[in-house]
Design a protein around this nucleic acid. Structure first.
Lengths: 340, 340
DNA sequence: GTGACTGTCTAAACCGGTTTAAACGCCTGT
DNA sequence: ACAGGCGTTTAAACCGGTTTAGACAGTCAC
């Protein structure tokens, strides 16, 4: 059968040249007469030849793929609005370069190092995205040891040999707090993410400092875990305070929506009795009742920028600069109002 | 530097045998003396040798990877609880076999065929998961043409050369309807997913037939698109009916939660004025107020089963049988109650 | 006419495995 | 002594590209 896909040798014989010439022509390397190049490209076209990724991988020692290791509990990951859009952004870049995205989901609690080690040892990818950055993140040293190029999503707090793509959460968080202050709130609490995460800390630090600028202190800063269950628990603790807050700022929408449910279950009316704000502008934020005031980032562009930056590193470019994206922005809906 | 990873030749010289012998030993092929095998394995161990995926890929013409093409709008994908857990299940199988998962997100509206074509032409994967099956799904013929093995998630309605992994949605849907009937509802409506999808049709067919068994007809069957926005719109249409339903069954949680918001925004109390039920048991279902009555499937196990089944096909096994998973189950919470 | 140079192209090695055909050593039977 | 057969091992081809060293022809200067 003629079902076999053509190889470079087929193209070479058809064009009446050597394998090497075909390779040169296809990679646009100098040293071939223009007429020869045309002849080769025509032959390749007629045969419908596409170079084999596998053979290329072997000879040039590249995988033509990038890797994303997601270290989360599947249940938590389930409703995280960030990754799907981020991945879509990444793919929009990879598609143009014929690269693939290799996903590795490591269940939280398992050995996350193993995820990166596998990717590196199996030489599956040319570089990885470093997401959910933590303080003194051990993965940075690990990647250096493994010799795996990377790009970090947001800036690590320690030294890092990798460029960072930065989407500053702080202006958005500050805007939420200022919005609440403008409405007249003075008793404002925060439900933060796990402090081990750089972005969780950035958000809660921005929360505290914005309040401080107004001469206020938080009623309380509860630590959540970014899950709905954690959001509920933190909310209940806040509502049980002797002097409960009149507004709660959550570090993500999931906790905020769960908190909204908890407040309503406790008999409160939002926003009359309690104002609530989230972070992410997930799809449901707009459609729950009342609509959730939140902060919108652009994970798709984040993914695009991260992929572009990682590719520059993978391509061997030295000193790839950090990329700063437009900061997240406040979206006001009906879950916030003046306190009673 | 000794940083270079060892090759099969290094192992061979160290063990004092030929490359071929090492290959035989590692793949457990007969024809080698046990003593030699031990010697080779010891040498490989000392050198920390792991065979190169790339070289293996080239010589055996396999990718050692499976592919998942997701054809959705990123915004929609964002809050879909199915895929993350499904993927985690898939990975739990792949990890044990040293396989990788290649993800391809095709933005809805783009050419989804191209996604599969790329995966096949680049020979990135040995097989793919066929998700979000549609009626007379054109991808089945496409995959046959591309010669790409596959496993279908749920059973296609036409003929298919691929095994299917089946998680029957119908018992869960029927259970929801029966639950509402037991509560005394007689005016029940449905917000379905796009009828082009096999699973959307299965759910709405189960809805209608369960009602019919009780001698009832649906108040209305509105078509949503599985998004929150679609859920809102469909809900508003239902509530605007001259005789609105006392209960609404949604084809997924996202639409249900949005519908809950719409009902509340319209001044209704759930479940007193209107009962609402979803499908998926997404994380938030438990934590919105009131907690959402819904149907729980197990996407993680779905992923496991799909990966195992696909691997049997990829391994060349003939007539791989379909796998039937335990059906989805009703989860009763507070969004359903007897009608006023 | 010779040597140097330039532009074009090819042969062959190489990436790191797998696989096939053949060779080797050894025992057995006659 | 020799053929046959078996168990074990190896050399070499192969997968399909890339890359390097060198061959070859043509031009130019001297």
């Amino acid at each position: 059968m003629s079902k076999q896909r053509p190889t470079i040798a087929d193209v070479a014989t058809r064009a009446g040249v050597s394998k090497g010439a075909v390779s040169f022509a296809l990679n646009g390397r100098p040293g071939l007469a223009q007429a020869t190049v045309d002849k080769i490209l025509a032959a390749a076209d007629e045969l419908g030849w596409r170079p084999s990724n596998r053979a290329r991988s072997l000879s040039v020692s590249k995988a033509f793929a990038l890797g994303l290791v997601i270290t989360r509990d599947p249940a938590v990951l389930s409703s995280d609005p960030f990754f799907p859009a981020f991945i879509a952004g990444v793919e929009s870049v990879l598609a143009t370069r014929g690269q693939a995205l290799v996903l590795q989901v490591v269940t939280a609690g398992e050995d996350e190092e193993a995820g990166y080690r596998r990717l590196a040892q199996d030489a599956r990818v040319d570089g990885v995205f470093l997401s959910d950055l933590r303080h003194d993140d051990p993965r940075i040293d690990l990647l250096v040891e493994l010799g795996l190029p990377a790009v970090s999503l947001n800036r690590p707090d320690g030294a890092s040999p990798f460029p960072a793509v930065i989407l500053d959460d702080r202006p958005g968080t500050s805007a939420v707090v200022e919005h609440l202050l403008d409405l007249g709130h003075r008793r404002i609490a925060h439900v933060a993410g796990p402090p081990a995460f750089v972005h969780a800390m950035a958000r809660s630090a921005a929360f505290v400092s914005t309040l401080a600028t107004a001469g206020l202190e938080p009623v309380a800063v509860e630590t959540g875990d970014f899950t709905a269950a954690g959001g509920i628990a933190a909310t209940r603790r806040l509502l049980a305070l002797p002097e409960p807050p009149t507004a709660i700022v959550y570090a993500n929408d999931r906790m905020a929506i769960a908190g909204l449910g908890a407040a309503q279950a406790a008999g409160l009316t939002v926003p009359d009795d309690l104002s609530i704000a989230g972070f992410d502008d997930s799809e449901l934020a707009e459609y729950v009742h009342p609509g959730l005031t939140t902060v919108r980032a652009d994970p798709f562009r984040f993914g695009e920028a991260a992929a572009q930056t990682l590719n520059r590193v993978v391509d061997g470019e030295a000193d790839v600069p950090d990329v700063e994206l437009p900061p997240a922005q406040l979206v006001v809906r009906n879950s916030t109002a003046a306190p009673a």
